[in-house]
Design a protein around this nucleic acid. Sequence first.
DNA 1: GTTCATATGTAGTGATCCTACTTATTGGGT
DNA 2: ACCCAATAAGTAGGATCACTACATATGAAC
Lengths: 112, 112
Amino acid sequence: MKAEQLKGHLDALLLAALETGPRHGYAVMEALRESTGGQVDLPTGTIYPALHRLEAAGLIAGSWSVVGGRRRRCYVLTEAGTKALSGRRADWRDFAAVITAALEGTPWPSTA
Amino acid sequence: MKAEQLKGHLDALLLAALETGPRHGYAVMEALRESTGGQVDLPTGTIYPALHRLEAAGLIAGSWSVVGGRRRRCYVLTEAGTKALSGRRADWRDFAAVITAALEGTPWPSTA
DNA sequence: GTTCATATGTAGTGATCCTACTTATTGGGT
DNA sequence: ACCCAATAAGTAGGATCACTACATATGAAC
């Protein structure tokens, strides 16, 4: 999984990882690694700045807590984040359909 | 179609556009625009440097010609380019499958 | 003769993800 | 006791890539 390929799609993955419930950064990292069979294995230098961006954009809301002596910043999808996620999903479907069509010459399997 | 989404996937599109036969840059641009229903509409500042990169990488070979008083640089897929294209296609399928699975939670429609 | 489509190109910008490093706590191995 | 791995968060700087804006030139239409 090359680095450049992910560009522009990471936010959608992070939002999706938070859709099932609140998670802290490290947990998001692991959730993503497991849900993709290890193919999306983000370094901390990618995930934390990305979460900060999403928080600054108002798509997720973070709050500090301490569990087992370790500080955690737990993130939840905001209402704007939920909307953004469905937008990103639609964007992805469109994007994937276009690229697949251009590459394969065959139409995308209908999901409608 | 947001700009950042395309990052890392452009080369595959360009190689695919050249698969059906030799084309010059402007023609590649139009072919891509038409094959994607206008959704991939690359500015010249994107396409020409990208073609230069591919040529420098040995994936395409360019040659000058003059048609109707206008100079053209016509590109052909090299052998390495053909191999690269099938690699890029495989990469895309893997990538798309992973992202779709992570976003939708459902497996990719089997193409096998 | 001016404007549009054709045709190619460069310089600089901005966004994004990664590498490498730092800090801190808990718990297991020896 | 000591060290190291896993957990947990973060920053600074670098590399890549596509885009904006601009420059150049010809042919065709009006």
